[in-house]
Write a protein that binds this DNA or RNA. Structure first.
Lengths: 204, 204
DNA sequence: CTCCTTTTGTAACGATCGATACATAAATAT
DNA sequence: ATATTTATGTATCGATCGTTACAAAAGGAG
């Protein structure tokens, strides 16, 4: 399409990945433009020409995060044969992803911007929307378990989805506190211990 | 002791409470000195004379928070007759406190400063230490339950404390997303559903 | 009263924040 | 070839950040 003009000398996707890592580690407000441009290996005019603004860069970085780092955790939901295994794998993959040492601990969507501000409304709203989508994905998978007879008809998929989503949010903070993979799995075990009770006493 | 010099014209404790509310709503880095002095009703020189620095003010504000807002939640732990009731009340009081509309949602200790930075190391470390103390309080209460025979001898108090602490952390984010009291209680119900499994199948 | 100590308000400090003006460089279009 | 378009590097913008000098004000001590 547009091949005119001087060609860009940096890899836009690679730069976006670097920006994502900075936002992931520092949060939206904690990531300064100096740190971003340094990590991306470009000067600020190039950043603004390619991404528009710090806010637009963050929105694009979180979208990139969802499609790369956060993808496999949620893909496992629909692939698992039962709702129980789906939730268990969802939490186990979370425990693994949140405790890797070669990247920031915890989740960008969860920790990226928690404090509302007049100038940060769009950022908070976008992350909130993404978290709501995650809750919805959990709820839908549980409802499928009800439809398939795995879970009783009066199973509260909404309440259970809220519980498991909240556990995952807590694991982000636990991971930020330096929790090991095993410590995160202790939380997973606790959450899964609730399963048989929530599922109505019928052991899977 | 020292009554010399011009007397202070503002209530130091009241100003500290206002500062706590600002830090609670905005986080450490999101709370600017302008917003702090405006909320406290004083000018910056008065703030620095009375509290030292923004960092020292935050540390004092979190300590004030622990002794006021966060006190009753943890007091209930030791007063409850059984470990099960202790955990349940702990979580229910959390759900109530986190969903009040006359104050910021969620917990200052949990949400105050999650992103490590070269200049914020002391802040993060202090909050981390307070979260570790909370975990320790939960663990000690569960160990008491083991000692009193309420819980089996092989009960993993450390793992269970990690689980319940993580649930509480997640509730802070859930509350920040606007969750109602009832929604938070759904999470509490999920966490308590794990109890009978964790306690070794013996229903309380 | 005159010292001495401490607080107060004004006004500003250097540093950094996110964001740009501008001239130059490097490509395509005609 | 010249014109056009886009990217790059330098150098900086106004605003705000956390912090502080400074002098006037308000109390006790002598």
């Amino acid at each position: 399409m547009s091949e005119r003009g001087r060609p860009r000398t940096f890899d836009r996707t690679a730069a976006l990945r670097r920006a994502m890592q900075v936002f992931w580690a520092r949060g939206y407000e904690g990531a300064s433009m100096s740190e971003l441009t340094a990590a991306m290996g470009i000067n600020s005019p190039s950043l603004y020409a390619a991404f528009g603004s710090k806010e637009a860069l963050f929105l694009e970085a979180t979208d990139f995060y969802s499609h790369t780092e956060g993808a496999d955790i949620w893909l496992a939901l629909d692939e698992a044969p039962t709702a129980r295994l789906a939730i268990e794998q969802f939490l186990c993959l979370t425990a693994k992803a949140y405790s890797q040492n070669d990247r920031p601990q915890g989740c960008l969507i969860t920790l990226g911007a928690l404090h509302q501000d007049s100038s940060r409304g769009a950022i908070c709203d976008d992350l909130r929307r993404r978290r709501a989508e995650n809750h919805s994905a959990l709820q839908k998978r549980l409802e499928r378990g009800v439809a398939e007879g795995e879970l009783p008809a009066d199973f509260d998929s909404n309440a259970a989805a809220t519980f498991f989503a909240t556990v995952q949010h807590g694991m982000s903070i636990q991971a930020r506190d330096g929790a090991s993979h095993d410590a995160l799995l202790a939380t997973v075990a606790g959450a899964m211990a609730a399963w048989r009770t929530l599922a109505g006493g019928s052991a899977a």
